[in-house]
């Protein structure tokens, strides 16, 4: 049980890192008009993106649709 939780957490974190890279290199410029040209703050978002990646994907899709 404990090993399963640890493996699930590692998988969740790995997918989150992938989502974070995609979002920071591509997505953020598409859904946030104040982001293009601003790069120094982006690494600060990585922990939050990794922790909240399912919600980030959902919100990203909603904002993409609106734009």
């Amino acid at each position: 049980m404990a090993a399963t939780i640890v493996h699930a957490a590692m998988f969740y974190g790995a997918v989150g890192m992938g989502v974070a890279v995609l979002f920071l290199l591509w997505g953020i410029d598409r859904i946030d008009p104040t982001a293009p040209g601003a790069y120094a703050f982006r690494p600060l978002l990585i922990p939050g993106l990794v922790l909240l990646w399912p919600f980030v994907l959902l919100r990203w899709a909603v904002l993409e649709f609106r734009h």
């Binding site: 939050g48 990794v50 909240l52």
Partner: peptide
């Protein structure tokens, strides 16, 4: 604490 620190940047206020 990690979640709150990780979402303390202004970006998260606008995004969430």
């Amino acid at each position: 604490l990690l979640l709150l620190a990780a979402t303390s940047h202004d970006f998260w206020l606008a995004f969430l």
